[in-house]
């Protein structure tokens, strides 16, 4: 039984049919890369499991049970964390405050619930140590962190909250080479802890390094799924540009 399964997802924005029956299955403990040309529908597809969009048709199953997310919050409470490239963190807050944002532990002070900062601090330090991350846990705010460190904070958040599924939409798009390696490392780490990771990216070298399996999208459909070790860049590019299984058989 797959951890997360999308089947026959259709989605149109007005007259534009963006998803035309997406089928995709994610196993626990694997990194499944999702590749495809610009506009293929990758982001739109994963926004359905993030609770941002509702499908026009089709269904999503989480651990075999059919689910319908009515909000991002709902998806999150069911264990699906999405890390967006651009809006992952609140700059004004510390690393710990970001990791706990929206789910702060509280303690009573004169009968009033107040945020338990001591707990946040100690949990954050332990978590960052466990991730052997280079994020300074005591940084006053995340504003001064680099792009890779920010991604790491977002991933740490997912790990802490025991996400079952973590979706990373182009996590390395704006990063320097060294930082990419760190994010790839963290993604593998998540998978090693039993999390199912969906990893969207454009850099095929990186994709083949990080992924267990690769799914290729073309014009709103998943047209090819293959184990990373059984494919190569040339093959992926063929499928990304519209090569079909039928053609493959004919050849």
């Amino acid at each position: 039984m797959a951890l997360l399964e999308m089947s026959g997802i259709f989605k149109s924005f007005g007259p534009v049919e963006v998803l035309r029956g997406v089928d995709l299955a994610l196993e626990a403990g694997e990194v499944l890369a999702l590749v495809g040309d610009n506009g293929a529908g990758k982001s739109t597809a994963i926004k359905h499991v993030a609770g941002v969009y509702r499908a026009d048709a089709g269904e999503i199953r989480l651990e075999g049970k059919k689910v319908e997310f009515d909000s991002p919050r709902h998806a999150r409470t069911l264990g699906i964390e999405t890390v967006y490239q651009d809006l992952a963190l609140a700059d004004a807050l510390s690393v710990g405050a970001n990791i706990f944002l929206g789910r702060e532990p509280t303690r009573k002070f004169l009968g009033i619930p107040v945020v338990d900062n001591a707990k946040i601090r100690s949990e954050t330090e332990a978590l960052l140590k466990r991730l052997s991350s280079r994020i300074p846990p005591k940084a006053a705010t995340v504003a001064g962190l680099s792009g890779g460190q920010r991604q790491a904070v977002a991933i740490a958040r997912a790990l802490y909250w025991k996400a079952k599924v973590v979706v990373l939409d182009e996590p390395t798009a704006a990063l320097a080479v060294m930082e990419r390696e760190h994010v790839i490392e963290l993604s593998r780490r998540l998978a090693a802890e039993g999390v199912g990771v969906i990893y969207i990216g454009h850099n095929l070298i990186e994709i083949l390094e990080v992924a267990d399996r690769v799914a290729v999208m073309y014009r709103g459909q998943v047209v090819h799924v293959v184990k990373a070790e059984e494919t190569n860049q040339q093959e992926l590019i063929k499928y990304m540009t519209g090569f079909t299984e039928a053609e493959a058989k004919a050849a």
Binding site: S71, P72, R73, T77, T82, Y84, L87, L89, D91, A92
Partner: peptide, 13 residues
């Protein structure tokens, strides 16, 4: 949180 990024605040619920 809202002042620094309203959309991400919304997304964390």
């Amino acid at each position: 949180a809202i002042g620094s990024n309203a959309e991400s605040a919304r997304r964390v619920g």
